[in-house]
């Protein structure tokens, strides 16, 4: 089945990225920042430097491996923030309804009109570059889809018999949301979160590429590509490997998300892009 292939291939790619991030100091052959040697700059890929070296003589393989740490941290933490914000707003809006629902829906609609990368860029402009800013910028700007799905699910679930029963038995709103609503909408939310991590990694790379994310010399895949752009004629391999790393990691997350969707939320196949 195609769904199972998605899960395995996607899970495999993600596992490789996670392993690279966890064991970076042992996998890398050089220090990603300090081992700069201008005598060895712009070496093409070879036996000593598997992916070649950049214009300052740093080992690209080591930088790509360490880059996994930044990408995955940004992806996981910011998506966790998005999931929490979106779920809290969506569930409460759907379950309580009324003016709160109106407020949340209006806010969601306004945010939906701002392309999320532009919004993140504006926040980065205010906060300045850096990992912390990135987490905030990406963690606050991509929760609208989660909120919409959570709201729709809460609306559908609250009229279900077991939720009604819990209410009659005197459970409080919080208990009902945690015990009855959340477990029953976990499937779609996990799928959205998996795809969202990939999106956040792409956004981090884009912002770092623009010079607004992770600042050099730290090895973010996006800022490495920014370097590569200026030296594309001289060191094309500098462009190839970080980009490939982003592509394979995000592809893994997308395949994993598709596979999880087939597994957890089969009726929604046509609902989501």
């Amino acid at each position: 089945m195609a769904g199972r292939a998605n899960l395995w291939i996607g899970g495999g790619l993600v596992a490789v990225a996670v392993a690279a991030a966890l064991f970076a100091p042992w996998i890398a052959t050089h220090d990603p920042v300090l081992d700069a040697n201008l005598m060895l700059s712009e070496e093409p890929p070879g036996r000593a430097f598997w992916f070649g070296t950049d214009t300052q003589g740093r080992d690209i393989w080591s930088r790509v491996v360490h880059g996994a740490r930044i990408s995955l941290t940004v992806g996981l933490v910011s998506q966790a923030m998005n999931t929490i914000i979106g779920t809290v707003l969506g569930v409460t809006a759907g379950y309580w309804g009324g003016w709160w629902d109106d407020v949340v829906s209006a806010f969601t609609n306004i945010l939906l009109a701002i392309p999320s990368l532009i919004f993140a860029l504006a926040i980065m402009a205010v906060l300045g570059p850096g990992l912390g800013s990135l987490l905030i910028a990406l963690g606050l700007t991509n929760w609208t889809f989660t909120a919409r799905i959570a709201r729709a699910q809460a609306l559908a679930l609250k009229s279900q018999g077991y939720v009604q029963a819990a209410r009659v038995m005197g459970y409080g709103d919080l208990a009902i949301m945690m015990r009855e609503l959340l477990p029953n909408m976990a499937g779609p939310l996990i799928v959205i979160a998996t795809l969202g991590i990939g999106g956040a990694i792409l956004s981090e790379a884009a912002l770092s590429f623009l010079g607004l994310g992770i600042r050099p010399p730290y090895p973010s895949w996006g800022s490495m590509l920014s370097d590569a752009r200026d030296n594309i004629r001289v060191v094309p391999w500098l462009a190839a490997f970080p980009g490939l790393a982003i592509f394979l990691t995000v592809l893994g997350l997308n395949l994993l998300g598709d596979g999880l969707r087939d597994l957890l939320d089969p009726q929604s196949r046509s609902r989501q892009p």
Partner: peptide, 15 residues
Amino acid sequence: AVSGLSLPKFWLGLM
């Protein structure tokens, strides 16, 4: 299609 969605645009542009 799934590959196209996973490609960083600026990397594709660079290539």
